[in-house]
Amino acid sequence: MQFIQQYGLIILLAVLLVFMFWSSRRRQQRQKAEQEAKAKQTLPGAEVMLQGGLYGTIVEYDAENLDQPAIVEIAPGVDIKVHSQAILRVVTPTEAPGAHEAIDDESVADAPHVETPEETAERLKGENDSDQK
């Protein structure tokens, strides 16, 4: 009992110190994993949101050298250079080359039909013609 009275506070402080180091290291590992995932998604063609709230499409990005500016297209023909850390998040990631799976004939046959713009125009024209009669 006398041991706890003398060394209890020191033991408690040591346990808290170990817990702080452990949780800090765990948070750093999680942030590093998130950064690596973001770097994998940040490829040319990916839509991103910048720190200032601008949305754009990545034109050029060097994941290895983060000191190089990224080039982001914010409008057709309007490219801006931003610091690579100004990319807040990837909105619509693109697949890395070779990352997509092979498509077999059965999955294509089972896929629902998506109407093309030309088919939509023809259908609407036919509906308008029948309404006028």
Rank of each mutant, 00 (worst) to 15 (best):
I58M: 05
G53C: 13
V78T: 12
Q51N: 12
A46C: 13
V78H: 10
G77K: 05
N65T: 06
L54R: 05
P76G: 04
G53D: 11
G77F: 02
G52V: 08
V78G: 03
P69L: 03
M49S: 13
N65Q: 12
E64L: 05
V72E: 01
A63Q: 11
G45E: 11
P44S: 15
N65D: 14
G53K: 11
D62L: 05
P44C: 14
D67R: 11
L54G: 01
I58D: 00
E73Y: 03
G52I: 11
A63M: 10
V59Y: 01
Q68C: 05
I74S: 07
G56V: 00
D62E: 11
Q51T: 15
G45A: 12
D79K: 08
D79W: 00
V48Q: 06
Y55S: 11
G52R: 13
E64P: 00
P76Y: 04
E60R: 13
E64F: 08
E47H: 12
V48M: 09
A75H: 04
D62S: 09
V48W: 00
L66C: 01
T57E: 06
A75Q: 08
V78C: 01
V72H: 07
T57A: 03
Q51E: 15
D79P: 00
E47A: 14
G45P: 13
V59H: 07
G45C: 12
D79F: 04
G45N: 14
G52H: 15
A70Q: 04
D67Y: 04
N65A: 12
L54S: 08
P76A: 09
I74N: 09
G52M: 10
A63P: 05
A75W: 01
V59A: 11
G53Y: 10
E73R: 10
G53R: 13
G52P: 02
I71S: 01
I74D: 04
E47L: 10
A75L: 09
G77C: 09
L66G: 01
N65R: 15
D67W: 03
T57S: 06
G53I: 11
Q68P: 01
Q68R: 09
V72M: 08
P69C: 01
T57C: 01
N65H: 08
L54V: 06
G77Y: 03
N65V: 06
G77M: 07
I71D: 00
Q68A: 13
E64S: 10
